[in-house]
Design a protein around this nucleic acid. Structure first.
Lengths: 132, 132
DNA sequence: TCTACACCCTGTAGTAACTATAGGGTCAAG
DNA sequence: CTTGACCCTATAGTTACTACAGGGTGTAGA
């Protein structure tokens, strides 16, 4: 199949497919006489894997490791589990950071009395002890 | 004060201070005869504002708008409120995205039986119907 | 046959918000 | 007078793409 078909089959943009090839995540496919890329089912499977992992928030570097691990089916699952667990920790950290930020933001917004900027609580919060 | 003092007073890196100046967020300060930047209290207040806003997750573009608004104390607070409210919506969206992702990741991880990669549930989840 | 038009190619630059490095100059203390 | 901490500029690197610019290809309709 051509790059456009592969792209739409995996909900990926054509440019992204080429990008994955450039950074060595997707193997360079065969070319037609007109220099068009032609992909097979192995490429489709590989790209699906990549997209799914990306959807789960894994970085490209993690995806690279997961791909390498998935190729060696006899290896222990522990490394895969480790990568996923590390990622989960990271996601948890982000959630708690954002949640803290959210409540702070909410507190700031709650103080707004819709007056002028001069006595705006939001601005005041951002720049304490700045006036005059 | 010199750039290093300003930086440590605001928990910012020296390079970041210079970066803010380059993108026009922080006004270029006076220079000594040796071409060292010398900052005053106005710069300190401005940079504090920027850092506080950044800590609350505002983008540099939003910070730029907030700074412009904060300079005109007679204006209505509504624009400020709008920017903050928009940001809060954005943060909420991120939190719910991450929370959904987190539970999916948790589900995947829960299925891991610590065997070999061949029957690893994590890999299976990522690449369904791929095996020969 | 000509000509649109959708699709493909390469290569480069842009995005956000810094961070890091190279290759230099300045200043105070010992 | 030299060591070390600090300062300067300019450029490239980071993540994960996305968006051109400037071209070639393949096919369907007039």
């Amino acid at each position: 199949m051509k790059i456009g078909e592969l792209a739409s089959a995996t909900a990926t943009k054509v440019e992204t497919v080429r990008f994955y090839e450039k950074i060595g995540l997707l193997a360079p496919p065969a070319r037609t006489s007109a220099n068009y890329r032609t992909y097979g089912n192995d490429h489709l499977a590989r790209l699906s894997f990549i997209r799914r992992a990306r959807d789960l928030g894994f970085t490209l570097e993690a995806v690279r490791e997961l791909l390498a691990l998935s190729d060696d089916t006899s290896q222990s699952c522990a490394a895969v589990d480790g990568i996923a667990r590390l990622h989960l920790t990271e996601v948890d950290r982000k959630i708690s950071d954002l949640t803290a930020l959210r409540s702070e933001l909410d507190r700031v917004l709650g103080a707004c009395r819709q007056g002028t900027v001069g006595d705006c609580k939001i601005i005041e919060t951002l720049a304490p002890r700045q006036n005059s």
